[in-house]
Each structure stands twice: as C-alpha cells, then as structure tokens.
Design a binder for these strands. Sequence first.
DNA 1: GCCAACGTTGGC
DNA 2: GCCAACGTTGGC
Length: 144
Amino acid sequence: MNYWLVKTEPEKYGWSHFTAQGRAIWDGVRNYQARNNLAAMKLGDQVLFYHSVSNPAVVGVGTVTREAYPDPTAPVEANGKPTPWCVVELEPALAFSQPVSLAQIKAEPMLANMGLIKQSRLSVMPVKSDEYDQILQWGMKFKV
DNA sequence: GCCAACGTTGGC
DNA sequence: GCCAACGTTGGC
C-alpha cells in the first residue's frame, strides 16, 4: 500500500465535486514528475486530497480504483511521438471532520520533509506512511 | 494582487 | 547545450 497527495483548486474541481460524482478521473497532468507519480499508483493506494490556493488544506482521502491509462484529454501524439500523459481513477474514501491546513503541516517538524513543503509546485507526490498517519489522525479528530 | 519557484521554449 | 524570456503554480 502506497500513499500519495494530489492537489486541486477547489474552485475548479474540489472535494464537493468529487463526492457528488463519487469518482474522479485525474486528468490534465502535464508535468513529467507528476505523471511518473500517477503512473506508479496501484489499486487501493490511499490519496490525500489537497485544496490549493484558497485555504490550502488536506480535506479528505481517496482510493485508487483504476491504475494509469492514457489521458483522454491529451493529444495522442506530439511531434510524431506518442504522448506520455496518463490518468488514474479515484473514489472518495474518507471525508475529514476537520481540514488539515498547510499551516498545521508546516508547524509539525515530523512533516517538514514532505514534498508539499519542499516542492510546492508539484501536483502529484508520494507521501510516507508515517506522514499519512499523522495527517489522517488530525483530519479525523472530532470537533470540540 | 504580488512575488518566488520553477518548468518550458526558443535564439544563438 | 546554454541561458534569457516567459508562463504557470501556489503561498501569502
């Protein structure tokens, strides 16, 4: 089991869209590093769902329900070469009772090496299991 | 709205 | 192959 984090702008496609549809095709990734991460996702992997830009925070968890296949929104080839872009399919697994803010993540020394902080522009990245556990624990706390 | 980080493009 | 210009992302 592997853990990941995907970013999305909630105004364009947020958690509410995701849960309303019950499924998402994670398309439109056009960065090689992000693409390689998508391609490495396996069925059942857990994916932190992160809202960027306004109120940056992890808001829930999705499960990989289909492994990488060619991105239908990408051209089949460019400059005579097949295009490398791919998508995965995700389903909502867990809605956080409390969003885990970027500020909270930054304030925790254990999470200081997360790609989210180190490589702020990458949109699909791996997460270590202990990092995932910590964020899940925060996210599933009951409100007081 | 501003700006830093950084990926991509294109001239040479 | 280098590097400047430019575009995009995303935090603040």
